[in-house]
Write a protein that binds this DNA or RNA. Structure first.
Lengths: 202, 202
DNA sequence: GTCTATATACAGATAGAC
DNA sequence: GTCTATCTGTATATAGAC
């Protein structure tokens, strides 16, 4: 927040434009490859104005990241009425949809994770979302075991972690863009569902 | 020419030192965060000398990447005499060992993949290794099916791809460094092996 | 082959007018 | 709030002596 007076309706709009422009460019080309001059040009303001609104480039980066992460929540809806096996496949579909909907910014976040260059608060936010999803998987498995629909020897924690790893791996492989692979993603997701259910239902 | 050949021997050693230094620094801190001045200091030469040996920083980068990838091969040894189930677990162990042995450079390569900023020849080399490994998995599964040790309805291609995805996901999660996870990596690998064999053996 | 010195470019950031 | 003009640092790359 700047210390200017309240008569800054125009400034707020401009600030907002800078922010969304920065969020887009950082996501597309990364922090290093996005000079302020580029943000300035796209947002149609001067570099100096950006640095009036934000103390530094890094400050802008943090603010823009917050915006990038805004849509990062998962709306699971109400799963409790569903058969546990369906709950699992529903959660898998949500993961896939999430990755598809947030396309380029997911790549950006993954990049930050790999390079361990993200601000701590962002990383913990991602971590939060991550373990939240794993817990939902674990709970669904636990319920399935409790109701007797799943095998008695499933391990909610381990099986949830295993499934999540597989989903993460499939996400990664989207980045590789392996043309040699004879298998398309949809087919692979389908096979994952069947395999997981095969394991859980025994 | 006498002087030239003496100098040449010296120069080769120096060039080599520049190359290995660059490979190390690029892997550790990335291309952007490794100025030539840093490479020069660590290799104990001048910046100018680096640019005498290599046409540009990017040229140095490509050459250094080649060196980074040198140990990127997988020595599978002779698997054919082993039980197919053991072959699978052996391949899993090789993957894990590979990632552990090549630690920081794997992170670097993954970074290049995610940002799609690697030179084409490097990316295709990685892709080559990748599909090679997947094919080995698929072949082991195929043999297991042929000998009747594995279920008749396993799908070598799909199951190999699924397993590889899981391994990739586990690799990714090493980067996240999730402290909240109640599960350690070894435990998870062990669980993966059991689950995969459970699936294949039926 | 290797160096010092320098050219050139462009990044982030500041000063001050309006 | 927003601009133009400028400062300052640092990057890659070149020139030329040895």
């Amino acid at each position: 927040m700047n210390t200017a007076s309240e008569s800054s309706a125009q400034g707020t709009r401009t600030r907002d434009r800078i922010l969304s422009t920065a969020a887009r460019l950082f996501s597309q080309k990364g922090y290093e490859h996005t000079p302020l001059s580029h943000v300035a040009r796209e947002a149609q303001v001067s570099k100096a104005l950006i640095l009036w609104h934000f103390d530094s480039k890094e400050d802008l980066f943090r603010a823009a990241l917050g915006r990038t992460l805004e849509p990062y929540y998962i709306d699971v809806g109400d799963l409790s009425s569903l058969d546990e096996g369906v709950q699992i496949t529903r959660l898998i579909d949500l993961y896939v949809k999430f990755v598809r909907d947030n396309g380029y910014s997911v790549r950006f976040i993954v990049d930050l994770i790999v390079r361990q260059s993200g601000p701590d608060e962002v990383m913990s936010q991602v971590n939060e979302l991550y373990s939240l999803f794993r817990d939902m998987l674990a709970q669904a498995i636990e319920r399935g075991r409790a109701t007797g629909r799943f095998r008695a020897d499933v391990d909610p924690q381990l099986d949830a972690a295993l499934l999540l790893s597989t989903l993460d791996g499939m996400l990664m492989e989207r980045f590789i863009g392996d043309e040699k692979s004879p298998i398309n993603p949809e087919q692979q997701i389908e096979h994952l569902k069947q395999t997981v259910l095969g394991r859980l239902l025994g």
